[in-house]
Write a protein that binds this DNA or RNA. Structure first.
Length: 864
RNA sequence: GCUGGUGUGGCGGAACUGGUAGACGCAGUGGACUCAAAAUCCACCGGUCGCAAGGCCGUGGGGGUUCGAUUCCCUCCACCAGCACCA
């Protein structure tokens, strides 16, 4: 230990020793209480950003904390290394992904090591390697056998910039989740996972996720979107009322309002549109359908809720009233939901109401609320059924069930549940992903590649162009293959898998990452899973986290895992944000350095300052490597943890970093200055009862700090307050052992307290600032590493207070304080409070009505 | 519009189960050390009235329950996030 704190030197030293001694290596199977902590693995883009540093720092605290608490810890790391950015970069600069990716992984891994994270690197995986993706293919085949994989022709979300299909979850506000481009609709064949088969269990099991943030489970609940109701068939008739033999099926959650249904509306894409449109309406209908088709889904929904429609000229029979009602088309009816058709009840549905008012369609009230019907809008609440034939007089709740029963008996309807969740279309028209193990044969159709031919290797493409078809189709050696069934020449599937497939099960691969016979060791997985703590950003609330749960349920059915859910606890950490500067006229982003006196350097106009997530495009990023060089890993980590609780966004602050750095140096200086006194001394239990004065207070603080830090980390996961407790303790140590105090005066129990302070503070801080603590720990003469030292335990005797401070209030207002011994009787406390001079002043001349004594807290004297 | 969340000093944030609001850090002010500066150490640091002792106000606004409310209830406001014509 040197006089000056030199992070570069000590951090490299300890990282090297940790690696040499393999201290973070997890056993194949845990032989005690286990703790599996996992951070969402990164896409290796080349350099870590601050968000990663924060995410991984949190995981590292938990991992190190539980290791010191005697758990068998599994804390692995890998790379989500397939994906578009590498491929898009290749189009730009010609460096193919298979060259770029391993280089990037090396850089990122080195950066992670420089930050001192305690990963078990022997378990590293990278999803772009055949050793990994062959198991994606293996799962694909198993899921095919189970009917979970299928091929469909569907209207898909197409990102024209990334040139690929996107699943529903991957579209935000009509834009691509990755590049923010407006998504188009396109009809092409694709592969899909039947995730909807698991909709009910994905929904039900949210209840098991008690340690997931509510907002994440709520978002999933909404996304899965279960809606209960019934389907009803409406027979079609012509204008003269003669049956055409066709029926249109609608879905409704409000069968109780059917007597008020005065028209039926189809989606413009509804398959019946062509057949039922009358000649008189044909021109209007064709124009309307064409106009809707030209609009993106986004535009169609965007129009501020303007309802538009056109009559088809056809009519339907309301199955309950027998009445002839018109059939319309409207923009607000979606082909993809329910039956693509609705029965419109304008009196009791706001959309239908607006539509009916606009086009002069009849509005018929069939549910009477307790009070008045609202004016100028639909009544969508509960009530009594009126004008509803035999159901009149029932509550609408009961009517709902009776009418479904009637419809089922009449053969024109049935109970039905609709879901917002769609199947997961996972084929991607790109190169850098897992090849889909299928061969298309003219005679046999799509044929799965047999297991013994796995992996289907990704061919080595080196020339990239930006075109809208799958690049693998341009590699004849890859495409041409014999049909596994009939042996005739056939063509391989040229699309690749969505990279969310890779991340759907990687947590299980970490259990036995080198297994070349199975995706993972089932017995080891039984012991290691579920993940005890999963940490990542909330942006994956309904993409990754839904697929990940789905895949786990499939694996459970396959007998590979044994818990209903993959992760017991989820911690969603906030973003790292910083001020960003934008010109109001050009919309151009500037870095802080580029600004001239806070103004746009080109136009001189005042820039708009907003707090934004750190990003290259907004030019407000801070490079972790530069910070690492300037302050060291411990400071950087400590800042990320101290600034704010983990779920909140943390605003980057250079001042804040300096504060963290200052604290580290404060601990360092105190240690260095007292090294001679403390070296070679073991932790010495001190008899608290024998201590007096400042020494006694200090010992109490020391043990309180142990308590606080432990509950802050294990309980509420508030690392900011854990660190604050260490700072307070250090401030106390400075007060008791100031620099001015001669070393020779620190003897006996005081010397033991000094030693114990270092002994405890290095262990308490070790999960957060591990290198600093190793260095001081070693300087104290400890042989073993602090990262495997046992977590300190508070001495209960030191936590018991002999004297307690009571606040004295008069009518709830603080007036003074008294100190009484901890075992004082209620009467003694009351007496002392009544004698307190300040309180006395405030109640003189008034009658005491009541005295409230709250043990260990306060005395409130109520006067009148 | 719906759902969820948040609102505390100049700033980031603390506060157990209703019990002394503002821990800890940042910024700021003053002092010690220094030839000087930096670094460091110490002290002060919500507003307001007051020379002071001390008083009054104060956790988005208003109301309520309570001896006592940042915490519980009602209501309003602001901001953030997600979903959004889902029948």
């Amino acid at each position: 230990m040197n006089e000056t704190y030199n992070p570069a030197e000590i951090e490299a030293k300890w990282q090297e020793r940790w690696e040499r001694e393999q201290v973070f290596r997890a056993p194949d199977r845990p032989d005690g209480e286990k703790f599996y902590v996992l951070e969402m693995f990164p896409y290796p883009s080349g350099d870590l950003h601050m968000g990663h540093v924060r995410n991984y720092s949190i995981g590292d605290v938990m991992s190190r904390f539980y290791r010191m608490n005697g758990r068998q810890v599994l804390h692995p790391m890998g790379f989500d290394s397939f994906g578009l950015p590498a491929e898009n970069a290749a189009v730009k600069d010609g460096v193919p992904p298979q060259i770029r990716t391993p280089k990037n992984i090396e850089r990122v891994r080195a950066q992670m090591k420089a930050l001192g994270f305690d990963y078990d690197w022997s378990r590293e995986i990278a999803t772009h390697t055949p050793e990994y993706y062959r198991w994606n293919q293996w799962f694909f085949l198993r899921m095919w056998e189970r009917g979970i994989v299928y091929r469909r022709q569907a209207a898909v979300n197409w990102c024209p910039k990334d040139l690929t299909v996107l699943a529903n979850e991957q579209v935000f506000d009509g834009r691509c989740w990755r590049c923010d481009t407006l998504v188009e609709q396109k009809s092409i064949p694709e592969w899909a996972f039947r995730i909807t088969r698991y909709a009910q269990s994905l929904l039900d099991d949210l209840a098991l996720l008690k340690e997931w943030p509510d907002r994440i489970t709520t978002m999933q609940e909404h996304w899965i979107g279960r809606s209960e109701g019934c389907e009803l068939d409406f027979s079609l008739v012509n204008a003269a009322g003669q049956p055409t033999g066709q029926t249109v099926r609608v879905f409704t959650t409000r069968p109780d309002t059917t007597f008020g249904c005065t028209f039926v509306v189809l989606a413009p894409e509804h398959p019946l549109v062509n057949q039922i449109t009358t000649p008189e309406q044909r021109a209007d209908v064709i124009a309307f359908v064409a106009r809707m088709k030209d609009m993106t889904r986004e535009e169609r929904l965007q129009e501020g809720g303007v309802k538009e429609g056109v009559p088809t000229g056809a009519y339907a029979i309301n199955p309950f009233t027998g009445e002839k009602i018109p059939v319309w088309l409207a923009n607000f009816v979606l082909a993809g939901y329910g039956a693509g058709a609705v029965m419109s009840v304008p009196a009791h549905d706001q959309r239908d109401y607006e539509f009916a008012r606009k086009y002069g369609l009849p509005i018929r009230v069939v549910i009477q609320p307790v009070g008045e019907l609202p004016a100028d809008q639909a009544w969508t609440g509960p009530g009594t059924m009126v004008a509803s034939g035999e159901f009149t007089g029932l509550s609408n709740d009961e009517g709902k069930f009776r009418m479904i029963d009637a419809a089922e008996q009449g053969g024109f309807g049935k109970r039905s549940i609709q879901w917002h969740l769609r199947d997961w279309g996972f084929s991607r028209q790109r190169y850098w992903g897992t090849p889909i193990p299928v061969i298309h044969c003219e005679g046999c159709g799509p044929v799965p590649v047999p297991d013994d031919q796995l992996p289907v290797l990704l061919p080595n493409i080196t020339a990239f162009k930006s075109v809208g078809d799958a690049p693998l189709g341009r590699v004849p050696e890859f495409v041409n293959a014999p049909c596994p069934k009939c042996g005739q020449p056939a063509r391989r599937e040229v699309e690749t898998m969505d990279t969310f497939v890779d991340s759907a099960w990687y947590y299980a691969r970490f259990i036995s990452p080198r297994d070349d016979k199975h995706p993972f060791d089932v017995e080891a997985a039984r012991q290691w899973l579920p993940i005890d703590l999963y940490i990542g950003g909330p942006e994956h609330a309904v993409m990754h986290l839904l697929y990940f749960r789905f895949w786990h349920k499939v694996m459970r059915e396959m007998g590979l895992v044994f818990t209903p859910e993959p992760a017991a606890k989820l911690l969603t950490q906030g973003m790292v944000v910083a001020p960003a500067y934008r010109s109001p006229s050009s919309g151009k982003w500037w870095s802080r350095e580029e600004l001239k006196d806070g103004r746009d350097p080109e136009t001189g106009e005042e820039v708009i300052v907003t707090i934004e997530k750190m990003s290259k495009s907004k030019r407000n990023g801070v490079d972790p490597l530069a910070m690492l060089q300037r302050y060291g890993a411990d400071t950087l980590r400590l800042f990320c943890l101290f600034a704010t609780p983990p779920e909140k966004d943390v605003e980057w602050s250079e001042h804040g970093v300096e504060g963290a750095h200052r604290f580290i140096q404060r601990v360092w200086r105190l240690a260095y200055r007292n090294l001679e006194l403390a070296r070679g001394q073991p932790f010495t239990p001190v008899d608290h009862a024998s201590l007096t004065g400042a020494a006694r207070d200090f010992n109490a603080r020391l043990h309180q700090a142990i308590d606080r830090v432990t509950t802050c980390i294990a309980g509420q996961q508030q690392y900011n307050t854990a660190i604050a407790a260490c700072m307070e303790l250090t401030n106390e140590a400075y007060a008791l052992f100031p620099e001015s105090r001669g070393r020779e005066t620190i003897t006996g129990p005081e010397r033991a307290l000094l030693v114990n302070y270092f002994d405890v503070v290095t262990r308490l801080l070790a999960p957060m600032a591990p290198h600093l603590c190793e260095e001081i720990w070693a300087a104290l003469g400890r042989d073993a590493l602090v990262c495997v030292a046992p977590w300190p335990k508070a001495d209960p005797a030191a936590l018991v207070k002999s004297e307690v401070t009571y606040a004295v209030q008069v009518n709830g207002k603080l007036r003074g304080e008294i100190r009484v011994s901890a075992d004082a009787s209620r009467e003694r406390i009351e007496q002392a409070a009544l004698a307190e001079p300040a309180a006395l002043r405030h109640r003189e001349g008034k009658e005491i009505k009541r005295v409230i004594v709250v043990p260990n807290r306060l005395v409130n004297i109520v006067v009148g």
